[in-house]
């Protein structure tokens, strides 16, 4: 099986409190904060930063990469290869395979599986998987306090600090989220989608995973889904203690594909050798579940917790301006 040899996380500098957004819309309360990308940041620039960190973490040079995959639902293009653009910037050889994954936040685990297959078959020695999103929710919507920006990247190789023990999928075809090009992120009937789109598929994927992989106990759980409450429901149904959830949503919000990798990095940071991580990724139409065994706890400098906890708070007008949601006279 394939291993994870490096992991990198990039979170933009700015944060906005959920309560600051709510107060702008005359709503009370609001928990947590979210990361906000600068006006000159997008899925590509954030993904490049995460990839640099992952390469440094793995001790691998860019020219050793045989494969670069880019997962994003916010590239802003109908046709444009973020993976191909990354190749030149990261110093990869022109012979490296490139692939773009999108149209669903589950793209991150699709990209991961493609990389794993390549490494497992020994066709590829080092695969880079980049997951990056800049989600812009409609101002005033209930998604605005949570939909955020960030990036993560993984280096897959024959050897590493964690072993991918198995993957499983469950695809129902339930369309929980659809969005036309250029529309705001976050159009979802949350409770209906959680029950039928997410919970049923996620549970089926985890059950299938547990049938194929020898599991003594899940020590850590990671979930990529747009709502933190979905994670509590899933863990409860799977009889996994809620304190095993590794999540940075309260510090940086939900960043689509990137959330999977960022939460995984948090799990690695708190894991001990021999522990097992359950990682679940949701996207319209189904879920993927991944079993990961930690061989050796990786070191991070600065720590992932510190990266998530840092940042500079901004006010709502500043957020609107750098998110290009506020425009002046032409």
């Amino acid at each position: 099986m394939s291993h994870i040899a490096g992991i990198g996380v990039y979170v933009p500098r700015y944060r906005i409190e959920a309560s600051e957004i709510n107060s702008a819309w005359a709503r009370p309360g609001g928990r947590g904060r979210k990361a906000v990308a600068e006006f000159d940041e997008d899925a590509l620039t954030m993904g490049i930063q995460a990839a640099h960190h992952a390469l440094t973490h793995a001790g691998v040079a860019g020219n050793k990469l045989d494969s670069i995959s880019f997962a994003s639902v916010s590239s802003g293009y109908a046709e444009y290869s973020l993976a191909a653009q990354s190749t030149q910037v990261l110093g990869a050889l022109v012979s490296a395979n490139v692939a773009d994954f999108g149209l669903s936040t589950r793209a991150v685990t699709s990209a991961l599986q493609a990389g794993l297959d390549g490494v497992h078959s020994k066709r590829i020695s080092h695969a880079l998987v980049i997951a990056s999103d800049k989600l812009i929710a409609q101002p005033g919507s209930s998604f605005e306090p949570n939909y955020a920006a960030g990036a993560g990247a993984l280096i897959l190789a024959q050897r590493g600090f964690a072993k991918i023990e198995g993957t499983a999928a469950a695809t129902s075809g339930f369309v929980g989220l659809s969005r036309r090009e250029g529309a705001f992120h976050g159009l979802i009937d949350e409770r209906f989608v959680m029950q039928h789109g997410f919970l049923e598929a996620a549970q089926a994927a985890v059950m299938r995973l547990q049938d194929s992989v020898k599991i003594s106990e899940w020590n850590h759980a990671v979930l990529q889904a747009p709502d933190e409450r979905w994670a509590s429901r899933l863990l409860k149904n799977l009889k996994i203690a809620p304190e095993k959830l590794r999540s940075g949503t309260a510090q940086i919000g939900y960043a689509g594909c990137a959330t999977f990798v960022i939460h995984l990095a948090l799990a690695f940071e708190s894991a001990k050798a021999g522990e097992q991580i359950l990682a679940v990724s949701y996207g319209p139409g189904g879920c993927d579940a991944v079993a990961i065994k930690v061989i050796e706890r990786p070191k991070f400098s600065p720590s992932i917790k510190d990266i998530l906890a840092s940042g500079e708070l901004i006010k709502y007008p500043h957020y609107l301006r750098i998110s290009k949601l506020l425009r002046g006279e032409p």
């Binding site: 006006f39 940041e41 997008d42 590509l44 620039t45 930063q49 653009q85």
Partner: peptide
Amino acid sequence: AEYRIMYEENGLTMYSYK
């Protein structure tokens, strides 16, 4: 140096270092 958006030209986003 960090890779960032510089400007748009001919429908393409142009990137370089800041």
